[in-house]
Design a protein around this nucleic acid. Structure first.
Lengths: 248, 248
DNA sequence: CGGTCGCTTGAATTGCTTCAAAACTTGTGG
DNA sequence: CCACAAGTTTTGAAGCAATTCAAGCGACCG
């Protein structure tokens, strides 16, 4: 374990605590969970499609992308990972990974052996249920992305992604009001919304010109949340957040 | 419960049995699971976005579509349901439904109270794990659909969907060789691959002209599986089938 | 200070949409 | 058993959203 890491830095535990009140027993079990903490630089694959991992990892800090590559080499990002997420939790049940996960920024991640995860789930059914629930929410986000890419134009799609990221970051305390850090490049956004980089650029400029976003460098600010929500056809229900005001 | 229904008709139990060998105890618990069997005619919503169901349902026979509708009324189908599936199992953990499920054909479905499902999961952790696993595979399919809609052209997309449906139907014994029943209309396929109905029609004709599919009425036949797989950029890994030959 | 990476702009091209209408299929009631 | 209605498939033509290619600009970094 990394010398300077303490359980209270674990965004995953903080997230679980926000869903339901942990008993002392559960809290202890989570604190005791062996975590191999590792710092990874930006633009590195953490796991790759085809891997058969014996452990999963939680994001302690930083941003990741979950992606697949088509036969002719086109990349599609299917999810962004933020602090508290376990992007490859599925590998606990599904032996072969069908996705790759890469860092978008330098990341601190905590690897957890599947063996330890299993033990935790068996002894603490409510924690098992919470993990299951997390994977179900992840699934709900995938569904919304299918809709986004399948039935919305590029302008709406881009606005939708901004909405989703802001709300998710808010929910884990990584947004200040209607502003947050977004380290993705336009080319990464393009791979997420299924368009070309050039078109993402034009659409972002349009959003800017319409006063819906202020985006410079890594910083996003949303001057009029209701307008952006409307432009992005965004309804946060699918994120299944408990504290609904985070989704306001 | 419907008079003429017997547990051995339950495609869900057959599917679980194909994943791992059930103990007598588990088998008994599944057979005893109270199931409210219902026959539903074609093109009916079974559950709707926004519902807060106290039960889930398994498809005993027939086909369903899982869909969402955008603000401007465009429909996107995010999944097709076949016998053995539990399209709204997520509602066990997520109170508000973020999707609607409709019948594509007349369907026989079995409703299971969440209460009973919870009891089953608590007493039989391996069954709970199998259900969790099913939802994870569903998630893997959503991811592949994001890639399909985001990064493949309409011709490839259509071929991909045919591949996926054939393999899934094969896995539950609903295909004969490389042929199966596909009751979806071209307009439903369009909503699944995120294009217009007109374009689906042209693409299907192209697939036909290239000898990749024979499709008439509800019947699909694939004369050259390898060619269709290649045309659809299809790799069945993401379906996570245990008996790999089903995916050959 | 030169090289790499990300952002921006313009112009030509294209895959797909939209609109419109005809041909075919299926189910229903007289 | 035929006739009609309703839904589905097919075809053509015009239009557009987004792509591709190409080049210039700016910022950061070794």
């Amino acid at each position: 374990m990394h010398a300077s890491f303490h359980p209270q830095d674990n965004a995953l535990i903080r997230k679980l605590e926000s869903v339901f009140a942990l008993t002392d027993d559960e809290r202890q079990a989570l604190d005791d969970l062996p975590l191999q903490v590792m710092d990874i630089k930006a633009d590195q694959d953490i796991v790759r499609e085809g891997d058969r991992p014996s452990r999963s990892f939680t994001i302690l800090s930083g941003f990741t992308s979950t992606y697949k590559v088509t036969g002719d080499g086109r990349r599609q990002i299917v999810a962004f990972g933020i602090a508290g997420d376990i992007p490859d939790l599925q590998s606990l049940h599904l032996k072969v990974l069908d996705i790759s996960v890469a860092t978008l920024t330098p990341c601190r991640v905590g690897f957890i052996n599947h063996e330890d995860l299993w033990r935790l789930c068996m002894r603490h059914p409510r924690i098992a249920a919470a993990f299951w629930r997390e994977t179900l929410i992840e699934g709900a986000i995938f569904r919304e992305w299918v809709v986004n890419v399948g039935r919305r134009d590029a302008y709406t799609r881009m606005a939708h992604i901004f909405c989703e990221l802001l709300v998710r970051l808010k929910a884990v305390g990584l947004a200040e009001g209607y502003a947050c850090n977004l380290p993705m490049t336009q080319s990464e956004f393009a791979d997420a919304i299924g368009t070309s980089t050039v078109h993402v650029n034009r659409v972002i400029q349009e959003l800017r010109a319409n006063g819906l976003i202020e985006l410079s460098g890594d910083r996003l600010n949303v001057p009029d949340w209701e307008k952006l929500k409307h432009a992005g056809d965004f309804d946060p229900t699918y994120l299944h957040l408990e504290n609904a005001q985070a989704a306001a």
